[in-house]
Design a binder for these strands. Structure first.
Lengths: 169, 169
DNA sequence: TATTGTTATACTCTATAACTATA
DNA sequence: TATAGTTATAGAGTATAACAATA
């Protein structure tokens, strides 16, 4: 074994900063979503995804895509949101295995109620110390990383895609 | 209310990329720590902090600093690590209220067992698509953000510092 | 046989509040 | 009175595996 560290100082610094920034940001946003909208971050993400989609509907599988957890976790969260009246589940005409999820009017309102505060926190906390050029740079750096991570299956859990991870076809 | 969005496209893109990158990275690292070292990420962080400190010891309060959770959560995690023999708790001679936590030899070994794989994942997943200059830029952008977040108390939880959050003195 | 989704279950983690003790 | 830490307890979230139904 060599003595060379796998990460140099710069990389370590960037890594720790990234983890801490994301953690603190997530925590702050979590709190706001909980206080204002009685939503967890995951629930917010699901609603936001539905809200963005043109028809306001998506299949369960597509909904899970990118949101990192198990199928059962998705069922659990969607059940909660359905109970709260923020979305509905319905059968799909074409493929009877598929469940189509649709955001409700209440869901849209909840989303609208929560968005401004959410955006304000992100603007103040994350972009407060950054220029607009910095934001552009951050985006330019992180998007390739995200794409790379999406396509890289975790070494240990190689078997049957635990998350939205794409496998080579 | 104005119609101006609080975040522009670039900021939104950077924000989402940051959240997803951190989430996927965290997930991958979590898995590795669990598989190789039977440690959660938080437990790893605690051990790593102790390992870095010169004497291998720290007060509970200092240990919590920066790691985002409640006091009781820290007690819980430290108890687990103590049960596993990876650290010890002892009284402090000066201030009898203080508990001093020290990493054990087993703790150091566990850390050493886990670090190379950990670093490898970070190097491949996070820095794979980035040049060294990119890493430097990332660090330069994120460190001020981290400092800013550390000093910014979350609007809603203003009261008695729920985490390692600094309050103005 | 593979895919979509649900259920049951067990476990981990986190947070709140009440508590003890020292300063 | 304020600080350091623990405990009890309750709740939310997650993962695994077994399952049913459809393709």
């Amino acid at each position: 074994m060599s003595n060379e560290p796998l990460l140099d100082r710069t990389q370590l610094g960037a890594y720790f900063a990234l983890v801490e920034v994301a953690g603190l940001l997530r925590h702050a946003v979590d709190q706001q979503l909980r206080d204002v909208g009685d939503l967890s971050y995951v629930q917010f993400q699901l609603l936001a995804r539905l809200g963005e989609s043109s028809a306001g509907t998506q299949r369960m599988t597509d909904l899970a895509d990118g949101v990192v957890y198990s199928r059962s976790g998705l069922t659990y969260q969607v059940s909660l949101l359905e109970k709260a009246g923020l979305l509905t589940r319905g059968a799909s005409p074409e493929d009877e295995r598929v469940v189509t999820v649709a955001i409700t009017e209440d869901g849209r309102e909840r989303l609208a109620a929560v968005l401004p505060g959410h955006a304000a926190i992100v603007r103040d906390l994350l972009f407060g110390p950054l220029s607009h050029d910095d934001a552009r740079t951050l985006e330019r750096l992180l998007e390739p990383v995200r794409d790379h991570m999406r396509s890289a299956p975790p070494r240990s859990a190689a078997s049957r895609r635990p998350k939205g991870g794409r496998e080579r076809p």
